[in-house]
């Protein structure tokens, strides 16, 4: 019969905390990079310029079609031959490119969901297409995309566990190493699952709070 020994958690708390912080750090940087990527390619997806449209669509389709795990390994081993990315920046590149494609689709649907009359009203007041986009369309699109965007951020934190395969140090890799030395897989993986849940659920609550504040008065 398996003897539980939860002391492995408390004895190695520093390992978990360090791993969790690394996970948060890599996720945060990846999200910050994925947002501009997503906006850019999302706009590209609705561009009238054929070349821009094709490039954006190709990027999105490729990222959607390739498993993240394969993408990460590919970046690490193939791109790694030409650029010295290392596991840290390789992970961030993979995560932000991957999430960027999904954010691009969210941005596209958000923009297309804004009624056509909004653009017309802005243009009729003398705003250029770009000004109308920035001041009128994107703020409304942003409000629409907050919920799916929140899911995407949460997904990214969870997906960041995959970067352990290219030896980027973060929570999952720290747990693997700890299991290898302590043989306490049940205790360690249960606790790791809990940490992931706490991180994603907190993020979920924070975004919900901002959403409420943002929509105050308008709803």
């Amino acid at each position: 019969m398996y003897q539980y020994d939860w002391s492995v958690i408390s004895r190695n708390m520093d390992v978990f905390i360090e791993g969790a912080l690394k996970t948060l750090e890599i996720s945060a940087i990846s999200i910050l990079l994925a947002i501009p990527i997503g906006i850019l390619f999302g706009l590209g997806r609705i561009s009238k310029n054929k070349i821009v449209f094709i490039i954006s669509s190709a990027y999105i389709e490729i990222m959607r079609g390739v498993p993240l795990l394969v993408l990460l390994i590919w970046i690490f081993y193939v791109l790694g031959q030409f650029f010295s990315l290392g596991s840290y920046w390789g992970s961030i590149t993979g995560l932000s490119l991957f999430a960027g494609a999904f954010i691009a689709e969210i941005v596209r649907s958000g923009i297309q969901g804004v009624p056509k009359g909004q653009m017309e009203a802005a243009r009729s007041l003398g705003m250029s297409h770009t000004k109308a986009m920035i001041h009128i369309i994107l703020p409304q699109a942003f409000r629409r995309v907050l919920p799916p965007l929140a899911s995407q951020f949460i997904m990214l934190i969870k997906d960041s566990s995959l970067i352990s395969v290219i030896a980027a140090s973060e929570l999952t890799l720290a747990a693997k190493n700890l299991v290898a030395t302590s043989f306490r897989s049940i205790e360690v993986w249960t606790f790791v699952a809990l940490i992931y849940f706490i991180m994603t659920f907190s993020l979920s609550l924070i975004i919900r709070y901002f959403e409420k504040r943002l929509l105050k008065g308008e709803a």
């Binding site: 009624p115 909004q118 802005a122 007041l125 003398g126 001041h135 009128i136 703020p139 409304q140 308008e218």
Partner: peptide
């Protein structure tokens, strides 16, 4: 050339005053 639409097309995320001041400020 001012244009008034059948369906108003006000900017829903801005107050009445902000709707009116947006273009004079930005344009």
């Amino acid at each position: 050339i001012g244009f008034v639409f059948q369906s108003f097309n006000l900017f829903p995320f801005l107050t009445a005053l902000e709707n009116v001041t947006m273009a004079p400020i930005k344009v």
